[in-house]
């Protein structure tokens, strides 16, 4: 963007407050936003975990047993519990924001937000059930 502050260019006495580094800590809605963004770290952690699991699987039953052993440690349980909370937060915020990015119009009228968000939740339950069924071994 070009700076074109015509008559104000030589105005020396404005006061401009510098945004604090901790701006996100000073307002609940900003803090909630940062938590939403930080959920991505736990998403990345999940991918790393999956990669370790897959690597262990390809190394044979002993490696797989070892990683399962690690998953039972209190540290791993705590980490995974926190990660689950954050990824759930991601899921919920993601679904709730979908209608805003993808409004649907039928007959010229915009559908209410919940009518776009609700199918996401339904699909989530269905997909979760299918994944669980495959993993647990239907």
């Amino acid at each position: 963007m070009k700076e074109t502050h015509n008559y104000t260019l030589y105005h020396p006495k404005w006061y401009r407050e510098r945004v604090s580094t901790y701006w996100w800590a000073r307002q609940w809605s900003y803090f909630r936003f940062i938590l939403r963004e930080l959920s991505s770290i736990f998403v990345a952690y999940f991918v790393v975990l999956i990669l370790f699991l897959l690597h262990a699987l390809s190394q044979g039953p002993e490696s797989y047993a070892a990683i399962q052993e690690w998953l039972r440690t209190p540290f791993a349980i705590t980490l995974n519990f926190i990660s689950l909370l954050f990824t759930l937060f991601h899921t919920i915020t993601w679904f709730n924001l979908t209608p805003r990015a993808m409004p649907v119009r039928i007959g010229g009228k915009r559908l209410p937000d919940w009518m776009i968000a609700a199918p996401n939740y339904v699909a989530w339950v269905v997909i979760s059930a299918i994944v669980a069924w495959f993993v647990i071994g239907g």
């Binding site: 998953l71 349980i77 759930l88 989530w124």
Partner: peptide, 25 residues
Amino acid sequence: IAAFMIPILLFLFGLAFPLGWIEAP
């Protein structure tokens, strides 16, 4: 993808299997 698939997988492999809530495959 993360929204739809990660919570269930994390629940199964991170909590349910290690804690024995569900028998691990």
